[in-house]
């Protein structure tokens, strides 16, 4: 009986302890290593965008809203990536979700101007299509249209170095 209890306790402890050190609210995306969902539609600047037509080698899709604090913090990182890595084949596109376009435009003005386009997603359709859990959320799509990485919450420049730059160097 004691041996059985030991075994049982060991099993339960190993199950529970496998949960330590991870953030339980971060759920892995269904799209990582899978084809990216489509993304096409009018953008904040009045143009249109279509992921299928984007000629860039690697596309960074960032879901954001003007009312989200971390979005403000990560915007400079994304803008720097969009400007600095464009020549190496990176394109950054935003999904401005559950937001009022005028608020979003004000946000971009405040951040120093729109560096990359953002697809307007007032009703959150694109956000659902991409299976987003929170805002901000960022996806990396490679040349074949496959999602290679995904980050829930703020991205940092080291995250970009780690998950985006190597893909640009792939042949």
């Amino acid at each position: 009986m004691l041996a059985a209890a030991l075994l049982g306790v060991a099993a339960v402890v190993s199950v529970f302890s496998s949960g330590f050190g991870r953030d339980p609210s971060v759920v892995p995306s269904n799209f990582v290593s899978e084809p990216a969902p489509g993304l096409a539609g009018p953008t904040l600047d009045g143009g249109t965008y279509d992921l299928a037509e984007d000629p860039a080698k690697v596309v960074l899709v960032n879901v954001w809203a003007s009312w989200c604090g971390p979005c403000k913090a990560e915007y400079p990182v994304l803008a720097a990536a969009a400007e600095g890595l464009a020549s190496r084949g990176l394109s950054v596109v935003g999904i401005n979700t559950q937001d009022k376009p005028e608020n979003a435009q004000a946000f971009l003005r405040e951040m120093g101007g729109e560096v990359y386009p953002s697809v307007v997603d007032v009703e959150g359709r694109h956000a659902v299509d991409w299976g987003t859990f929170g805002i901000p959320e960022t996806f990396v799509i490679d040349e074949t249209g496959t999602v290679r990485a995904r980050q829930v919450g703020e991205v940092t420049s080291s995250w970009i170095d780690q998950h985006v730059v190597p893909l640009l160097d792939e042949s």
Binding site: Q98, A127, T132
Partner: peptide, 19 residues
């Protein structure tokens, strides 16, 4: 997805509204 444990029907979050 953006709440903790609530259903889409019960949640008032914008994403749940979209869903």
């Amino acid at each position: 997805p953006t709440c903790q444990g609530l259903s889409v029907a019960d949640s008032g979050s914008p994403l749940a509204k979209s869903m």
